[in-house]
Deep mutational scan, measured.
Amino acid sequence: KCNTATCATQRLANFLVHSSNNFGAILSSTNVGSNTY
């Protein structure tokens, strides 16, 4: 594990990016499902 501020910031940034991608995918699939019905 790294405990430097830079490494922690990069890890946090990566986490936010992945979370945003997952959130966007969920919204996209939900919109497609609602449009189908």
Rank of each mutant, 00 (worst) to 15 (best):
Q10F: 12
L27D: 05
R11P: 15
L12E: 09
L27R: 03
T9V: 06
T6A: 11
S34K: 08
T36D: 09
V17E: 01
F15D: 07
A13W: 04
A13C: 09
L27V: 15
V17P: 04
I26C: 02
G33C: 07
T4D: 14
G33N: 13
C7K: 05
V32Q: 10
F23P: 05
G24D: 02
G24I: 06
A5L: 03
L12T: 15
T36H: 12
H18D: 01
N22E: 03
T30Q: 07
F15G: 02
A25E: 03
S20P: 00
S20A: 04
K1Q: 12
S20E: 12
F15H: 07
C2D: 02
N3D: 12
N22A: 03
H18M: 13
L16H: 13
S19Q: 15
A25N: 14
N21I: 08
T9G: 08
C7A: 00
L16C: 15
N3K: 03
N31P: 01
Q10T: 13
Q10N: 12
L27A: 05
Y37K: 08
N3Q: 04
C7S: 01
S20Q: 14
S28G: 06
N3A: 08
L27W: 09
L16W: 15
H18W: 04
A25K: 01
T36C: 08
L12W: 15
Y37P: 06
T9M: 01
I26V: 08
L16I: 15
G24K: 01
V17R: 02
L16K: 06
Q10K: 05
A25P: 15
F23H: 05
T6W: 06
K1D: 06
Q10S: 12
V32S: 07
N21Q: 07
A25R: 02
A8W: 03
C2Q: 02
L27P: 02
G24H: 00
L12D: 07
Q10I: 12
C2E: 01
S19E: 07
Y37W: 12
C7Q: 03
K1I: 07
V32C: 01
A13G: 12
N31S: 06
T9E: 12
T30Y: 11
S28Y: 12
T9C: 15
V32T: 05
S19F: 06
N14H: 04
F23Q: 05
I26M: 01
A25W: 10
N3E: 08
T30C: 05
S29K: 04
N14L: 10
L27H: 12
T6K: 07
A5S: 10
S29L: 11
T30L: 04
S20G: 13
C7D: 02
S20Y: 11
N22T: 02
Y37N: 11
L27I: 14
I26Q: 05
S29I: 15
A13F: 07
V32Y: 14
V32D: 03
N3M: 05
F15Y: 10
N35C: 03
T4A: 14
A8L: 02
G24L: 01
A13R: 03
V32G: 05
S19P: 01
A5I: 01
I26E: 02
N22G: 00
A5F: 07
V17Q: 02
N31Y: 00
